[in-house]
């Protein structure tokens, strides 16, 4: 019994360590002072400055729009990519496609950012008028989100019973109907999970955006970076309090989605373990 308690104490320390910086940020967002050294009375003034800072609000909206668009396009491309990988006949080509798909998942951000920068500048010298800015950031975000969507959709495809597709064929369904009525509905949980992941990847990204964004377009991460380099402003704390609240909602949402998305086999195993 004693050993059990020690392990809980250890876990407690780990959780405290994980949450202290976040708590620190949020607590100081309510401070009346202007620095993160010493709490000087409760105040909401940093939230007021945050909401009246139009530049930051526009950047926030830009970031969300970027995440929304890039994950939507990445999901569309990723679904068909996953289907194509799944229906490949040769096992070796399938494995090769899958590893090619995963290259961007394992590459360090800096490499992705630097190589995309070379690529976009090359495009810019070919097509005058194509410069760094929103388009390049959007393209990069789509690019690094596609493999995540593929990885989320593939397990659902593997789980799908192919005879359903054959049955639909026999009953006279055309390709479009099969895709629309059989395959896509079955894949929906995987697609939603993929979209969700792509969305958060896009919101979170700093390094790639930092490389490929020009002077005109800024996302939240880049803005926080440049402000943090200048020093502490409690407006950022207020922002992080809101971000934390939002992440909490997202995590809870994702938790329920991924619960539905868990492979059947796994669910059974869990149940048998609990017994």
């Amino acid at each position: 019994m004693k050993k059990f308690k020690w392990s809980n104490l250890y876990l407690l320390f780990v959780f405290i360590f994980l949450y202290i910086p976040i708590a620190y940020l949020i607590v100081y967002s309510f401070s009346a002072g202007n620095s993160m050294s010493g709490f000087t009375g409760f105040s909401l003034k940093h939230f007021y400055t945050l909401f009246s800072d139009t530049r930051l609000i526009i950047i926030l909206l830009n970031t969300f729009m970027l995440a929304f668009l890039s994950s939507l396009i990445a999901t569309l491309i990723g679904i068909f990519g996953a289907m194509n990988i799944y229906y490949m006949k040769k096992r070796t080509t399938r494995m090769m496609m899958l590893s090619a798909n995963n290259i961007l998942m394992v590459s360090p951000d800096v490499i992705i950012g630097a190589s995309f920068l070379i690529f976009f500048t090359g495009l810019g010298s070919l097509f005058p008028g194509f410069g760094l800015g929103f388009t390049t950031v959007l393209l990069s975000h789509i690019a690094f989100s596609i493999p995540i969507v593929v990885l989320m959709v593939l397990p659902k495809l593997r789980e799908m019973n192919d005879s359903m597709v054959w049955a639909a064929y026999d009953l006279g369904a055309n390709n479009w109907q099969i895709l629309n009525r059989i395959i896509l509905p079955y894949l929906t949980p995987g697609i939603i999970a993929g979209y969700f992941m792509a969305f958060t990847y896009s919101l979170d990204d700093f390094a790639v955006t930092f490389f490929v964004t020009g002077n005109g377009f800024t996302t939240l991460s880049v803005e926080i970076y440049s402000r943090a380099r200048q020093g502490i402003s409690l407006e950022i704390n207020a922002l992080s309090a809101l971000v934390f609240l939002f992440s909490l909602i997202l995590v809870v949402g994702y938790y329920f989605i991924s619960k539905d998305n868990m492979p059947r086999k796994n669910k059974k195993e869990r149940k048998s373990l609990n017994r």
């Binding site: 910086p21 620190y24 620095s35 992080s240 934390f244």
Partner: peptide, 17 residues
């Protein structure tokens, strides 16, 4: 949950701490 919070915000917290 902490991984869903922007990395820059976490780094920023440590500047204060």
């Amino acid at each position: 949950l902490p991984t869903w919070i922007n990395l820059l915000l976490k780094a920023y917290a440590f500047i204060g701490i």
